[in-house]
């Protein structure tokens, strides 16, 4: 890949060509990240008049704070449930498309649409459907004897944000699963059929192992999505409630920083999040690049 090297006569030209990208990275990533790290070592008084350097105290307070630890736990539950739901449904839909030949294109196009919906809009959509007062689904659930109220019940609230967040991500996962399935040669499944494996066994022993690179890639991408891009969903549906039960890390950064104006703690939380995303990205590059299973 790297054997084609352009030779530049003027020393400055390569830097000039790289400049737009570097400037964007510096202004929109490096500078704010640096600011956040610096801010995380500071504490301001309630009126923003005095700023004190407190070193790592913001961090030590953070990890001693039960509400932060709760947010961490909520985030893990939320991320894993959303990943499981969105990937599971996406895989089932992708398998269905892989079997259909005639209407596969229309079907796929329809399934991709939710990806174009903004998270906040998706949140509002589901919020309406599940609205305890006017929603259609609580009405139906009442019919089977379940009193749905995500404004009061922690489980209901979590279920609702997971569904809303997963719904949007299904499209993305679906696309990758379809591509992954189509990359598996038909002859492998035919060989397995001749080798006496029924459809279910074929799926578990041939299709799923061969899909594992796609699955792993999507797992990382979906977790990153649930941890960072679901702010809109949470804000539109539950605002982190009831009783902190859906207060994920990224929402808490906003609440503590912008609502609570505790900028030092909020910055420290941002840095922790940044650390998590860096770790996930490293995992992705290290393992996905060299294909997981074979």
């Amino acid at each position: 890949m790297q054997n084609k090297r352009a030779i530049f006569g003027a020393k400055g030209l390569p830097y000039l060509l790289l400049a737009p990208q570097l400037i964007i990275t510096a202004i929109f990533f490096l500078w704010p990240a640096g600011q956040a790290i610096w801010q995380s070592f500071l504490r301001e008084d309630a009126f923003g008049i005095k700023t004190t350097f407190v070193a790592l105290e913001n961090y030590s307070r953070l990890f001693a704070d039960p509400s932060y630890l709760n947010a961490l736990k909520v985030t893990v539950v939320f991320a894993l449930s959303t990943a499981a739901l969105s990937m599971g449904v996406a895989l089932v839909l992708a398998l269905a498309v892989d079997r259909t030949l005639r209407s596969a294109r229309i079907y796929s196009t329809l399934l991709i649409w939710p990806y174009a919906v903004a998270p906040a809009v998706a949140g509002v959509l589901w919020w309406f459907m599940f609205n305890p007062t006017i929603g259609i689904l609580p009405y139906l659930l009442k019919g089977v004897g379940y009193g749905w109220n995500h404004a009061l019940d922690r489980g209901d609230a979590m279920t609702l944000v997971v569904i809303s967040a997963a719904w949007k991500q299904i499209s993305y996962n679906f696309l990758f699963f379809v591509a992954g399935l189509q990359a598996i040669p038909a002859s492998l499944r035919e060989a397995a059929a001749i080798d006496g494996a029924g459809p279910v066994r074929r799926f578990w022993t041939i299709t799923l192992p061969l899909l594992s690179p796609t699955t792993f890639f999507l797992l990382v991408v979906t977790i990153v999505y649930t941890m960072f891009d679901t702010f809109g969903v949470i804000d539109a549906i539950t605002e982190g409630g009831p009783a902190q039960s859906t207060n994920i890390l990224v929402y808490k950064v906003y609440q503590d920083g912008f609502v609570g104006l505790n900028l030092g703690s909020s910055a420290a939380q941002s840095v922790v999040l940044m650390g998590i995303v860096i770790v996930l990205t490293v995992i992705q590059f290290r393992f996905v690049e060299r294909r997981v299973n074979y």
């Binding site: 060989a191 001749i194 192992p209």
Partner: peptide, 20 residues
């Protein structure tokens, strides 16, 4: 009959070996 029940074995053009 299903391919598995026909008591045949097939060698494919691309071999169709299970890569994993």
């Amino acid at each position: 009959l299903e391919p598995a029940d026909r008591d045949i074995a097939m060698v494919f053009q691309n071999y169709a070996l299970y890569p994993h």
